[in-house]
């Protein structure tokens, strides 16, 4: 009975296996990115970037229909353009990164909506906005896995400068020029993972599988490595449980995954070891030193 509910769907249906593989790949790559977004106080930047991707994906969609390759390529181009332009403007002028990004993503979003409304009245567009992880073909799955692999490799390369830049950017600037490139590479990774996520979760929810696990991790550890591991686990568990939930009920898969993550988040806020509400209300007797 329990087997039928929890494991049965995956042994029985290939699309469920594909979806599970995809969501695990997304968790492995997206959650660490989310942790850094959160620690660098850029949580909403991910959201902004998700909007920035829209015109690229829309152009890809209009040129070749619901071809995920074309939409991915378009999304990457648009996302990179916005991320890099915003990064360059912020670094070469005094403008804060968020202000600079807001400008570019709004422009990009307006462009996207324009493109869509000129030529589209399509139901398939719902697909772009909310994704469909259950409709993954082999090709798409390979793209997702490839992007996840690239993300982990690049993250390994820029890990040290990225950490130092987050804690003490001025220090990194005085000892190395790696800060700027590391930051731009990080923004690129954000874009790659958003595009990766929107095939499964849609442009609007893609950022959810990055930020929510990061938020969960913050309540369980004070150590960066542990936080990343917890975030990845939380994302994978949300993905699996969301798929099961979606299979057993009529909830669409994308929202189901994010809703499960939300439940985990609420539990963490309440019972988390680090700064959870219950912990704060009943902290126990104070220590000796």
């Amino acid at each position: 009975m329990l087997y039928d509910a929890l494991i049965g769907p995956f042994t029985e249906f290939e699309f469920m296996r594909r979806a599970l593989a995809a969501v695990i790949a997304l968790a492995l790559a997206g959650a660490p990115i989310g942790v850094f977004l959160m620690l660098r106080r850029m949580s909403l930047v991910g959201d902004a970037m998700a909007h920035a991707i829209l015109p690229g994906a829309a152009v890809g969609f209009l040129l070749s229909g619901l071809n995920l390759f074309a939409m991915t390529a378009g999304g990457l181009v648009a996302g990179f353009a916005v991320a890099i332009l915003a990064g360059v403007v912020a670094r070469s002028t005094g403008l804060k990164e968020d202000a600079s990004l807001a400008t570019f993503y709004l422009a990009s979003l307006a462009l996207g909506v324009t493109i869509v409304s000129i030529k589209g009245t399509n139901i398939d567009l719902l697909h772009v906005l909310f994704g469909n992880i259950l409709a993954m073909d082999d090709q798409t799955l390979l793209v997702v896995a490839f992007n996840a692999t690239v993300t982990l490799l690049v993250l390994a390369v820029i890990y040290r400068p990225l950490v130092i830049e987050s804690v003490d950017p001025l220090f990194l600037r005085t000892v190395s020029r790696a800060g700027g490139p590391a930051h731009l590479a990080f923004l690129a990774l954000v874009v790659i993972n958003l595009v990766n996520g929107f095939q499964a979760l849609g442009t609007l929810l893609a950022v959810g599988l990055m930020i929510l696990p990061a938020g969960i991790a913050r309540f369980w550890s004070r150590d960066l490595t542990a936080m990343i591991c917890i975030a990845v686990t939380a994302a994978a568990v949300s993905g699996y449980a969301g798929l099961v939930l979606s299979f057993q009920t009529r909830v669409p898969s994308g929202p189901a995954i994010i809703l499960v993550a939300t439940v985990l988040y609420i539990v963490s806020v309440l019972f988390g070891r680090v700064g959870g509400i219950v912990r704060q209300l009943f902290p126990g007797r104070h220590l000796e030193a």
Partner: peptide, 15 residues
């Protein structure tokens, strides 16, 4: 270079 320490993000989880 030791700047005035205000520019360090002390909330970052680093030992």
């Amino acid at each position: 270079y030791l700047p005035q320490s205000a520019e360090i993000d002390r909330s970052f989880p680093i030992s």
